[in-house]
């Protein structure tokens, strides 16, 4: 059995630079220019899951992303980790995409980059964290999908997968091709080795633009994104002080009024009579 496995990954802003991130007041999108990116952490678990399947059953692992051109560096890192091929979808036309437009472009990229038996993603991105892309992508591809996958096993062309829920889990049998969005605890991503780094430069990395894909241009990027940010503002975190004066009893009375005024339900605090003496 030889499987074609595709992993969707996302470059996200390096957490060390979170304080440098700004939001464009007009477009209402994150300004990423000048912010170094890292591979979305849980996406490495998705790549690890794919590599483990390949090692067990044979096949090929392709990593794909829709991102600005400098994402080539992130993809090279995953080739060094062990992926066989990489595909970068990059075009000004993709810019400003919400999850729908992103999943639309990714689906077209996946179809273009060859057949697939299994698609892996992480559960969510560290920046947007909507968790919407995995399900949307699977819908575009018209394949079954599971989210928050904790364990799985491939048998013939069927997947046995365990999906974590808030208070337990559900075991599914899934017909392949299928998409699994894996959670962080599913595995520990392997280290990239020195040998892996040296092999990475010889592995194919294909760059595709919107023109290379079978897509309707109006469904791409900002234009194809129904999500519109209503308003953005920076909440004021300033503290204000208020001085209460008078005798102790009066101050306590005033304090209770202030707390009640702020919406605090003092009765619910269960203060007994003895405590008031």
């Amino acid at each position: 059995m030889s499987l074609n496995i595709t992993v969707c990954i996302k470059p996200v802003p390096d957490p060390d630079y979170y304080d440098k991130i700004t939001i464009d007041p007009v477009k209402k999108t994150i300004t990423r220019a000048g912010i170094p990116t890292i591979i979305n952490p849980v996406d490495k678990n998705a790549v690890e899951a794919a590599l483990q399947v390949k090692e067990k059953l044979g096949g090929k692992v392709v990593v794909i992303t829709m991102a600005p051109p400098n994402a080539e560096e992130n993809l090279r890192e995953l080739l060094a980790m062990g992926a066989d091929e990489a595909v970068l979808l990059t075009d000004r036309a993709f810019a400003g995409a919400d999850t729908l437009a992103t999943s639309y472009a990714l689906a077209a990229g996946l179809k273009k980059s060859g057949p697939f038996d299994l698609v892996f993603t992480g559960t969510e991105s560290a920046d947007g964290a909507t968790s919407q892309v995995p399900a949307q992508l699977a819908e575009w591809l018209d394949i079954p999908h599971l989210w928050n996958v904790q364990e799985f096993e491939v048998e013939d062309h069927t997947l046995k997968a365990k999906m974590s829920m808030e208070n337990g889990y559900i075991n599914y049998l899934v017909q392949m091709p299928a998409l699994l969005a894996v959670k962080r605890s599913i595995n520990k991503p392997r280290y990239t080795t020195v040998m892996g780094v040296m092999k990475a430069k010889k592995k194919p990395l294909t760059v595709l633009t919107a023109a290379d894909l079978d897509v309707e241009p109006e469904r791409l990027g900002l234009q194809g994104s129904p999500t519109k940010a209503g308003d953005i503002f920076t909440p004021s975190l300033a503290r204000k002080g208020q001085q209460l004066t008078g005798e102790t009893e009066e101050i306590v009375e005033q304090l209770i009024q202030v707390l009640r005024g702020a919406g605090l339900n003092l009765e619910s605090l269960n203060v007994n009579e003895a405590g008031r003496e």
């Binding site: 060094a80 280290y191 780094v197 990475a200 430069k201």
Partner: peptide, 17 residues
Amino acid sequence: TEEQEMLRKAVREFVEA
């Protein structure tokens, strides 16, 4: 070289963990 920078990053990740 680019490979040497990548190698440094890979080794650093291992060392930090």
